[in-house]
Nucleic acid binder design. Structure first.
Length: 972
RNA sequence: GCGGGGGUGCCGGAGUGGUCAAACGGGCUAGCUUCAGGGGUUAGUAGCUUAGUGCUUACGCAGGUUCGAACCCUGUCCUCCGCACCA
């Protein structure tokens, strides 16, 4: 066992002393390699980190070897809650906690052999870093992209602070999945990320990121085009957002989100007030994630809105299915054309108005109309879709037949029966007892009449129903009534006859002309709430003055330093307990004023750290634009999927903003992103709570960091889940030992020189390709195979070839196992394959010979046992009738048949060869070959084979491609 | 419901039209090795059966295209992940 401890320590020390990985501007082409920097927790690195960083380190080392100027640095996202909670719990100051944790991280990362340029390190908790957070905030403020607003915000009672939308997962806090987020109405700071929503959305297309991540961002931003429509309530206007203004004439109710602040105003002093309050409380108490699965529920609040076009009175409801977070928190209910509205209307017996007729064929349902025969129907072109057992028929009526159909049923309908059909409108035809026909098109005016007639005609059964209910309950009709498809407008006054697509535009512009609505784009993305009521974060540089209001701290006064002395046990924001900090003079009027005590969301810190790496010691500017423009954008970013809708949106937002304020000349931070898979053990993600954590440091101590690195990269491809198995790392360490031992190999012979050279050169090509494509596991498989080959064949290689290829092997392995390979003197330059030396033929030859010999050996073994019973030994590669027949026909002979190398070109020749063989069977065991090439191989190795088998070998002549000849092996 | 990824041996995982019972690794079984405490090496590891040849079956399930499919097409089931009563 080689002494990995000694070697690894030695090289880590050398790298550190020589500052091997420090980098600066140069004439070489740059490559910016970046991993998401970690939050330094007291627990140190976990296996996921180790995997993430190794993936990055391999690439960084590889790129360096190919001659690029690689920027690869590390830093710490060192503000954040755990440090503060530790302070509250254990009385350690967050600063001390953090310093200790960072030190530990650096040590661990060093011992993992990561090739960072440590001189560029940034720590977000240091004033020289967060000064620029504050500076950025002021820039946002200048551009009106930072604002303070009272708003309903998410509040986590356990973190004791508000949360951004992105930090709420299923109604729970992202840190505490068991803690329900509360809604509070607080005044907070926001960054106007929505201003960039379009840009963030559109430029996703040009990013070479995993599709899933891009799709998640699209979903998160989720722009939807629609119209804001004003409905008058009392003397005010309420705005409703809809993507379907074409259904405006179908609105039969308006629904508020229960927690909408307007609701209480509206019911104030009315008899509905108590009930509404009760209802709201009930809804708010419900688990938010479950609320979405509940049945629709709501109540009328006693008010009416005025329809902007028809001026009709529309009842206002509150309902659980309307959310405050989306749109305006108020929806217009169109039960005929929206599934949710339909369900709601059905439950509360609300009116439905069909305003869009489908392009579907007109349909009807013939009940008891025995006077109408199928032939009658067919005659006028009507199709019977379905015939039920009781004889009722569902029929489809083409447009041109509708009139004929109506005439036919009015003629043939027996008195006191009715029939209806649904096409572009819903038509009821009643035939009274006196033979009088009444034709009614269903709409809000005729509804009552139809109801009455239906009740008269049917009697009891109809009593509790209304025609809409009946239609919606009848499966056949309900499919037609409730739909969201395209069609032609009906019941919509001036707009009747328009396609609904056109109607969207027309109705919107009509509303616009009355000043009652306008087109907008609604985003799912909300403005970014950055205030946090916590201590261990970057102070927001704002001062509140009674006279001057909100006053930003002047840039020259930055940084607003976080005071060390605060009381962590106060229960509230510790920062507020330091009076020296909070009491301040107003920069404008010099009067007494208060400092903002909220700090920034730590995602602000991590939104631009990658820029600071390029110029981390700059005290005059946030960074030098020149340096940033040289290094950026990031050529390869690596990190976890969990940041898809958080950090990975924020850092794009910041980059775009920096471009707009002319700090940088690019608008996307990272062109390529790679997201590594989780590390699992026993099928579940490694985590403390699952108790299945393997500490990477333990593995490094036991097996060395090279072993750990190799193992992490070897088992599965970097983007898929890694299933940790304790046995695996042991075998890897055995393998590395073998690789090490090879350095001492003494070689003799030269038979395999050509093959070895061929193999190593192919390997160079494939490893290069596999690294570029993040298929590290396959690169390592190749390395292992070659190593094993070299090991087995070292006696047949010349020392020169051995040394050469061994060195290349080490060089290829270097990105993965840098310590060992450095010790064994690998090259510092990445090799390129010498294509001339790659010879597939001799590689094939060797494979072929060895498998042939194997076969022959087997056969000889058999022959020696019971020769008479040997019929055939076939490596069955080709399933063909012929082949099967051959086997039975040849069964009495003493024959050996070996076929190898089925290729597309030769595959079809085989039956012929076989046929020939049957006609002229050889006298002795035969080797029949499908290709001349193989015959040649055997021919050229005749002596070797004869020696091997101790017999004479008779070679056939290979006169043609189709008839390659035979090889007879004469065995005593 | 919408969107995305997957279903291959005891396990992790290769393989995307024919050299394939399935690379590489783990595990397990057995032999060898002056090997003693995660070492090296050889063989085996779908099922049935044989002294041995052999036969059958196989890449979630069911069809299809093809001389030929794990791989292409259609349907279906399952699973993982993201978003979601999005107005």
């Amino acid at each position: 066992m080689y002494n990995f401890r000694k070697i690894e320590n030695k090289w880590q020390k050398i790298w550190q002393q020589k500052k091997s990985f420090e980098t600066g501007k140069s004439s070489k082409k740059k490559f910016y390699m970046l991993e998401m920097f970690p939050y330094p927790s007291a627990y140190g690195l976990h296996m996921g980190h180790a995997r993430n960083y190794t993936i990055g380190d391999v690439l960084a080392r590889y790129k360096r070897m190919t001659g690029l100027n690689v920027l690869y640095s590390m830093g710490y996202d060192s503000f954040g809650l755990p440090a503060e909670n530790a302070a509250i719990r254990e009385g350690v100051h967050p600063l001390d906690y953090t310093k200790k944790a960072i030190k530990n991280y650096i040590n661990q990362q060093r011992s993992l052999g990561l090739s960072y340029d440590w001189s560029r390190m940034v720590c977000t908790h240091k004033p020289d870093y967060y000064k620029w957070d504050q500076w950025i905030f002021l820039q946002f403020l200048k551009k009106d992209l930072a604002y303070r607003k009272k708003a309903l915000v998410n509040f986590c009672p356990r973190c004791n602070t508000v949360l951004a939308n992105e930090q709420v997962e299923n109604g729970k806090c992202w840190r505490h999945h068991d803690t329900e987020v509360e809604i509070k109405d607080l005044e907070q700071w926001f960054l106007k990320i929505t201003e960039y929503a379009d840009k963030l959305y559109d430029s996703l297309d040009k990013l070479k990121w995993p599709e899933t991540i891009k799709e998640m961002q699209r979903n998160w931003i989720n722009p939807s085009e629609g119209t804001l429509i004003k409905f008058k309530v009392d003397d005010e206007c309420i705005e409703v957002f809809t993507t379907r203004p074409d259904t405006l004439y179908g609105v039969t109710f308006i629904t508020f989100a229960p927690e909408h602040p307007k609701v209480l105003e509206l019911v104030k002093g009315t008899k509905y007030e108590t009930d509404v309050k009760k209802f709201i409380n009930k809804i708010l108490l419900e688990d938010k994630s479950e609320r979405t699965e509940k049945e629709k529920e709501g109540m009328f609040i006693g008010k009416y809105a005025i329809h902007p076009l028809t001026k009709e009175k529309i009842p206002i409801f509150i309902a659980n299915f309307v959310l405050l977070e989306y749109g305006t928190g108020v929806v217009m209910g169109v039960p005929a054309h929206d599934k949710r509205d339909y369900e709601f209307a059905k439950k509360y017996d609300l009116k439905m108005i069909t305003v869009i007729a489908q392009n579907k064929p007109t349909r009807s349902y013939l009940v008891g109309a025995s006077a109408i025969t199928n032939e009658d129907l067919e005659k006028i072109g009507i199709k019977i879709v379905r015939r039920k057992d009781d004889g009722d028929r569902e029929i489809e009526i083409p447009k041109q037949s509708v009139k004929k159909y109506e005439k036919m049923i009015t003629d043939k309908l027996t008195p006191n029966f009715w029939n209806e059909y649904i096409g572009e409108e819903i038509v009821f035809i009643f035939k009274h007892k006196d033979g009088k026909i009444e034709r009614l098109v269903l709409n809000k005016d005729t509804e009552e009449r139809i109801d009455k007639l239906a009740a008269d005609f049917i009697g009891e059964n109809w009593n509790k129903k209304c025609v809409w209910k009946w239609l919606s309950e009848n499966k056949f009709y309900s499919d037609l009534v409730t739909h969201e498809e395209e069609g032609i407008l009906v019941n919509s006054e001036d707009f009747n006859g328009l396609t609904n697509k056109k109607a969207i535009i027309e109705i919107t512009s009509r509303l616009n002309s009355y000043n009652l609505g306008n087109k907008t784009i609604q985003y799912h993305l909300r403005d970014w709430l950055i205030s946090r009521q916590r201590y261990w974060g970057c102070p927001i540089p704002i001062i509140y003055c009674d006279k001057c209001g909100i006053v930003p701290v002047p840039e020259k006064d930055l940084p607003v330093k976080l005071p060390k002395k605060v009381d962590f046990k106060s229960g509230g924001n510790p920062l507020a307990t330091n009076k020296e900090f909070t009491n301040v003079k107003c920069p404008k009027c010099r009067g007494n004023a208060r400092r903002e005590t909220d700090t920034m969301d730590t995602f602000v810190d991590s939104s631009w750290y990658f820029l600071r790496y390029t110029d981390n010691k700059n005290t005059k500017e946030i960074f030098s634009p020149e340096k940033a423009n040289y290094w950026l954008p990031i050529d390869q970013y690596i990190g976890g999927r969990e940041h898809a809708t958080g950090h990975l949106i924020y850092f794009r937002f910041f980059t775009k903003f920096f471009k707009d304020i002319k700090l940088i000349n690019f608008d996307e931070p990272a062109l390529r992103l790679f997201t590594q898979g989780d590390v699992n053990k026993n099928g579940v993600r490694m985590s403390k709570s699952k108790g299945n954590v393997v500490d990477p440091m333990d593995m490094i101590n036991e097996h060395g960091s090279d072993s750990l690195r190799f193992y992490l990269m070897f088992v599965s491809s970097p983007d898929s889940v890694f299933e940790w198995d304790d046995g695996g790392i042991i075998s890897v360490s055995n393998f590395l030992n073998k690789l090490y031992d090879l350095s001492k190999a003494k070689c003799g012979g030269r038979e395999k020189d050509g093959i070895v050279l061929s193999k190593i050169n192919s390997l160079i090509g494939s490893v290069t390709e596999n690294i570029e494509n993040f298929k590290y596991n396959r690169a390592l498989i190749g390395i292992m195979e070659f190593t094993n080959y070299l090991h087995k064949n070292k006696d047949y290689v010349s020392q020169k070839v051995f040394n050469e290829s061994y060195k290349a092997l080490l060089t290829l392995s270097h990105p993965f196992v840098p310590h060992l390979t450095s010790e064994l003197n690998c090259d510092s330059k990445w090799p390129s394959p010498n294509r001339k030396l790659i010879n597939n033929e001799i590689e094939f030859e060797e494979e072929f010979l060895s498998s042939t010999m194997n076969d022959i050996h087997k056969i000889i073994k058999l022959i020696k046992k019971k020769p008479n019973r040997i019929k055939l030994s076939v490596s069955e590669l080709w399933k063909y009738d012929f082949y099967k027949r051959l086997k039975s026909e040849a069964s009495k002979e003493f024959k050996v048949l070996i076929e190898k190398l089925m290729t597309k070109e030769h595959g079809k020749e085989i039956p012929r060869i076989v046929q020939n063989y049957i006609k002229n069977p050889g006298k002795v065991p035969l080797v029949i070959l499908s290709q001349m090439k193989e015959l040649e191989i055997l021919n050229s190795n005749k002596k070797m084979l004869e020696k091997e088998f101790g017999c004479e070998i008779e070679m056939g002549k290979n006169d043609s491609k189709a008839n390659p000849g035979k090889v007879s092996i004469l065995i005593e």
